[in-house]
Every structure is written in structure tokens, then in C-alpha cells.
Design a protein around this nucleic acid. Structure first.
Length: 247
DNA sequence: GTCGTAACGGTTGAA
DNA sequence: CATTCAACCGTTACG
């Protein structure tokens, strides 16, 4: 039921049942994950979140479960799991460190150390800066291939108000820095500390993110119709939230 | 209608 | 350099 379109260098971009765009095998962009968690923390039910963000409810469930358990919304295993000493593990470690400090979800906490952490994350989703990962020639070539064939994918900005995306080259530079990061996100974001792709890291600039981002931002937020029914769920959510904070 | 989860197909990166 | 394989991803379907 899902339509697929093959994107060279990235894989199969598909459209899920909700009409959302995704790339099979690739994690959702950070800001989408962030939105999922934020909305959940605001008491929005997962089903509403999935509809609003056009993400499957299974994915929402996974992300929220992970968030409640680990305090991290980032993809990747927290415990590492395999003996594989990969970037994922490294990234996860950074998350763990950050989790200890940051799970108190306070915007005021978003701070500079975030930059340090962010430098170790985000990049996984796409080899945006192949030069940082010289060993990964495959990914680099895939990236360049895709980039070359789909320049338009890198020209979208998540928000309509955002300035035009710097041309693809800057993506590769990966040091693109602040210019595009903050404006992509809601400044009042509860989890901005946790999830803000922040400056240094080259956030996933590839297609799915931008596509989703534009979809999400363009899509008018429904007045949370579930507000009335939230009361009971709020308790659950609050309970989980406290559980998360406790971590 | 909502939620959690297993199965599935796909991507990624280390070996 | 190409291949293999484990880990992870999001979607789908089921209960």
C-alpha cells in the first residue's frame, strides 16, 4: 500500500499509510523525533502524534518507549548491544552522558555542552561529512552519488520561514554551523537540549528529513482535539515522564 | 479507537 | 575493493 520510489544513494523513499514520507531503513530526522517526544510530553496521545506527524504509530511507540526508558530520542542502541565498537556505540555513550545531565527537560538547560555531544551524534544518519569518516568510503560515495543525482533533496528547508537552504556543498562541509539549526526548531522546544541537532553536527540533510520537515511544518497543527480526553492519559504520561526524569 | 509489539524489508558500517 | 553480517531503522499488521 505504500508507494515507493527509489532514490539512488539513499534507498527507497516510501510513503506510509498516513501519507508521510520515509526512507526505509533510515531513522527519522531528529526534529521529527523531537516533535514526537514533545507532543507526547504535552499530553498528546501517540495516535494523535502519529497522525499529526505522519509517522506510523509503531514508530511513535518505539521512539516514546525508548525516550521514556533512556531519556534519549536519538536513534541507536543505548547499551551498545553488540560487541561492535561502532560509531553508534560512541554516539550512544554520548547520549548516556547527556542523559545523566539533561533529562531534566528544561529549555534553560540547553547549553554549550550540547555542542560537544552533538558533534558525536547526528552524523550517523548520513555521511554528511565524509571527510570525517575517511574509512567509510562506501557511504561517502553513496552520499555523493545521491547528492549528485538529487540536489533538490538538499535544498529544502524544514520551515517555510527558514532561509533558503545553503547549497549542497555546505552540507558536505558539515560545519555549516548555527545558521540553519536553531531556526529549524521551535525555540520553545522542551527537548531542545536533548535533540537539537545544534551547530556543529551536520544534521541529516538528506531527503527524508527535509521532506518530512516541510510536511510537518506546513501541516497546520490541529487544535488538539484530544485535550478533553487527555486527563486520564496525562496521568500515564506524567508517570512515564517522571520515570524518565528519574533516570 | 488506541496501544504495544513481532515480523518484515531496508540501510549502515565494521570485519 | 568487494563482500558478508550484525545491528538498527520505520512500516505494517496483528492482538
Amino acid at each position: 500500500m505504500k508507494s515507493k520510489l527509489y532514490v539512488p544513494g539513499v534507498g527507497q523513499a516510501g510513503v506510509n499509510q498516513l501519507g508521510g514520507v520515509f526512507v526505509n531503513g533510515r531513522p527519522l530526522p531528529d526534529h521529527v523525533r523531537q516533535q514526537i517526544v514533545e507532543l507526547a510530553l504535552l499530553g498528546i496521545r501517540p495516535c494523535d502524534i502519529s497522525r499529526k506527524l505522519l509517522v506510523s504509530h509503531g514508530c511513535v511507540s518505539k521512539i516514546l518507549t525508548r525516550f521514556y526508558e533512556t531519556g534519549s530520542i536519538r536513534p541507536g542502541s543505548i547499551n551498545g548491544g553488540s560487541g561492535r565498537q561502532s560509531k553508534r556505540t560512541y554516539e550512544s555513550r554520548a547520549e548516556m552522558n547527556k542523559c545523566q545531565n539533561s533529562v531534566n527537560i528544561s529549555p534553560s538547560h540547553q547549553s554549550m555542552d550540547n555542542k560537544e555531544v552533538s558533534s558525536t551524534r547526528n552524523y550517523r544518519s548520513f555521511p554528511a561529512s565524509p571527510d570525517r569518516h575517511p574509512s567509510n568510503s562506501h557511504s561517502a560515495s553513496r552520499y555523493f552519488s545521491f547528492h549528485h543525482h538529487n540536489p533538490f533533496f538538499f535544498q529544502h528547508r524544514p520551515t517555510p520561514t527558514a532561509p533558503p537552504n545553503p547549497p549542497s556543498d555546505e552540507v558536505i562541509e558539515s560545519e555549516e554551523s548555527d545558521e540553519d539549526d536553531h531556526d529549524d526548531y521551535d525555540n520553545s522546544s522542551i527537548l531542545s537540549m536533548e535533540t537539537k541537532p545544534s551547530t556543529s553536527s551536520s544534521l541529516i540533510k538528506h531527503s527524508i528529513e527535509n521532506i518530512l520537515a516541510s510536511k510537518v511544518t506546513i501541516k497546520k497543527k490541529r487544535p488538539s482535539s484530544s485535550s478533553s480526553s487527555n486527563t486520564s492519559n496525562d496521568e500515564q504520561t506524567t508517570c512515564k515522564r517522571q520515570k524518565c526524569i528519574a533516570c
